[in-house]
Design a protein around this nucleic acid. Structure first.
Lengths: 183, 183
DNA sequence: TGTACATCAGTGAACGCGCGTTCACTGATGTAC
DNA sequence: TGTACATCAGTGAACGCGCGTTCACTGATGTAC
């Protein structure tokens, strides 16, 4: 493989990373191709050598975002935990003030769920595959209780969305704290 | 008050209703002033006799949407219920397939939360006031347990967002069903 | 009762702007001989 | 080792389009006398 091709692959990866961050932070619709390319250190025209359209990038950006979330929830200090110990530690991390305040580095569901729900089937398929992967990993940590995993993820997502949309930091804290007691 | 003014008030109400429906159904950003006004049976130019800007309409649209939600959760068949009986009946309604499939008539939080989180302070204040009102009413039904109300609303919101974004109706059903067991 | 004028909600053409996308081009690198 | 040509990632001007907003106008209704 010639070096030029490796360079192109690196550019592509930078575009996907930029999209993953900017879409989560500002929304898909409110992020322009210009914004993305500038963030990746490129100019707008080059975008279409990598992706067919802006919409085609959304799936790849979602995959990158979910991969980050899986690392946060199942690796590092949380890797060895199981059952309720994992649930407590993971809840603390997902429902941290840090996660509330930095959507651009956080879970794609509260940040992009509503836009994904209105997207074409291919995007929703990509999103679904990632949600299934998260639910698989969660229920594996929760003694195979898949319904519990769904309930836990739902509570995390809703609390994060609410805490971000509300204006008062006190109310946001209270919502996240209450959600941390989800069983 | 002359009749012309009453007519203007009726037009304004129609614009707010249209916005409340269309914003929830298609998103704030993906609904144009033209769309809104056409839906209200008017033409675009007239909009600015009623609202200073498109952004100024979002707060009013949110209030209308939350009023609808409060009617759905606390009036009619649910008016007399308290404690766990209310929780079960309200969960069944919020987590119905109907609510999943009709965001334009549903709760504003899963539909517009992410866009509100990025909106100006005035919009977030309006949103917060409505969330507080819902939480007040919920905890009143739940023996004053405000943390439980926050947890329950979070689970409802997250499950609805997930079920709408995912492609498979089977997975969507499973998520809503699991969330119905939230305590 | 009729006429002239004022009011005002709504119309629709027009504005400037930013968007997604296209395309002729550049310039660095790789290949042939 | 040097020269000519091919390749190809990225550039940036340009495109058509839809958006939020403005504004001169219309036409129905209300008021004065």
């Amino acid at each position: 493989m010639p070096e030029s091709s490796e360079q192109k692959a690196r550019s592509r990866a930078r575009i996907v990373e930029a999209a993953s961050r900017l879409f989560r932070g500002r929304g898909y619709r409110d992020t322009s191709v210009d914004d993305l390319m500038a963030d990746a250190g490129l100019t707008r025209g080059g975008f279409y050598a990598h992706f067919e359209s802006k919409a085609a990038l959304l799936g790849a950006a979602l995959e990158a975002a979910f991969a980050e979330s899986r690392r946060n929830l199942f690796e590092g200090r949380l890797a060895a935990l199981r059952g309720d110990a994992w649930r407590r530690a993971a809840s603390e991390r997902y429902l941290s003030r840090e996660h509330q305040r930095r959507p651009e580095e956080g879970c794609a569901v509260p940040a992009l769920g509503a836009e994904v729900a209105r997207a074409e089937p291919e995007v929703r398929d990509a999103f679904e595959a990632e949600v299934r992967a998260i639910l698989d990993a969660m229920s594996e940590r929760l003694d195979g209780d898949r319904a519990r995993a769904m309930r836990l993820l739902s509570t995390w997502v809703g609390a994060t969305l609410l805490s971000r949309a509300v204006h008062s930091p006190r109310l946001a804290d209270a919502i996240r704290r209450a959600a941390r007691e989800a069983c």
